[in-house]
Design a protein around this nucleic acid. Structure first.
Length: 332
DNA sequence: AATAAGATCAACCGCTCTAGC
DNA sequence: TGCTAGAGCGGTTGATCTTAT
């Protein structure tokens, strides 16, 4: 255990690699393979530590490295996988041939993270930021920008995230308002009225999620009945299965019954999980998987398909958020 | 043209994990 | 079973490049 001494010993060279060093490293590995990285520098005639050699090879010199801009498809894959895996760059990199974990990490930190933040998302959870009062003007603007869908040049994932986020956040906000409205004279009363009167709920703006907000706002029971004994989700402790099913039907805008609707929803998710079965083992302790697995609390529809690799892949914030405890919203 | 600010990305640091003894 | 060395990972840094003023 402990940290292995590395570049800080014996005056080994650090910093940028020269073309000569690159050539030595490439030639040696092509001839002998890398073998033990620790032994390699000496054998290859390099005044570098093994760790530095390994990094240079894996991140830059490897022949199968793909360089250049990330394609929209790659960007979407990263977004999808990050929503599921979090900062597991090496795991994400295994699904992007030719891209290194370092490159993906840099791309995330310099592009995608900022993009999500600008869209009002928490880049770590992929959920709308919960400081809703602070970001309300932004959300209102988003929710009322139909042009966003019609004309915005962003890729599908970004648009979908933005639209869904606006509505999910509205829903969360509304749920809070409904709860708060019981307090007479509450400063949120006015806001609630204006919301319900249409200032924010513009049911005709965005289908299908727009009417999700209105229907749920109209029918949402702020004090749902207790769960059946067999249904003890920690995530959705106040929703009964029947309520969940019915709410889903409404929320997802389905003609069919709630279970079938939910199945459809699971199947309809973008391909992240379809393409990533090796990453989704039941024994995995990746915390962000909870977002996905929690979908199973509704009807077990997604759990098997997700873990089995054949199923869902919905935006991770969605089902959780829609079914979340209405009073769990973080408020300033 | 000069300079400041921001963006990018290669490389390093320090930690954890794992295989071998 | 416990210890160690080596490999790998994610976070961070800092040099360089680009853009704005």
């Amino acid at each position: 255990m402990g940290r292995s001494p590395c570049c800080d010993e014996n005056g080994l060279k650090k910093g940028p690699w020269t073309p000569e060093e690159d050539q030595k490293l490439v030639q040696y590995i092509q001839k002998h393979g890398h073998g033990s990285w620790r032994a390699l520098p000496k054998l290859a005639g390099l005044n570098r530590c093994g760790k530095s050699c390994r990094l240079r090879w894996t991140n830059y010199l490897r022949p199968d490295i793909k360089r250049g801009k990330f394609s929209p498809e790659e960007e979407q894959t990263i977004l999808n996988l990050h929503a599921i895996l979090g900062n597991k760059w090496s795991a994400i990199a295994t699904h992007l041939p030719g891209r290194t974990d370092n490159e993906i990490k840099n791309f995330w930190n310099t592009h995608l993270k900022k993009k999500l933040i600008q869209m009002g998302f928490d880049p770590m959870t992929h959920r709308p930021r919960t400081d809703i009062f602070a970001s309300l003007p932004h959300l209102i603007a988003l929710a009322n920008l139909k042009e966003l869908i019609d004309h915005h040049p962003w890729d599908d994932h970004a648009v979908r995230l933005q639209v869904e986020a606006a509505h999910a956040a509205k829903l969360q906000y509304l749920q809070h308002l409904l709860h708060s409205a019981t307090t007479a004279g509450s400063p949120v009363d006015t806001a609630a009225n204006s919301l319900i009167n249409g200032n924010i709920i513009a049911a005709d703006i965005m289908e299908p999620t727009s009417h999700l907000v209105t229907t749920s706002a109209a029918t949402f029971n702020p004090l749902p009945s207790p769960l059946p004994a067999h249904h003890t989700s920690a995530h959705h402790p106040h929703l009964s299965e029947a309520q969940t099913s019915a709410s889903l039907q409404q929320l997802l805008g389905c003609e069919t019954d709630g279970d079938a609707c939910f199945m459809e929803f699971c199947k309809g998710g973008e391909g992240a999980l379809h393409e990533a079965p090796p990453l989704l083992s039941p024994s995995s302790s990746l915390p962000s998987l909870m977002d996905v697995s929690s979908m199973a609390n509704v009807g077990d529809a997604c759990s098997t398909s997700s873990y089995g690799g054949g199923g869902g892949g919905a935006p991770s914030f969605w089902p959780d958020l829609l079914l979340d405890d209405p009073f769990m919203i973080d408020l300033p």
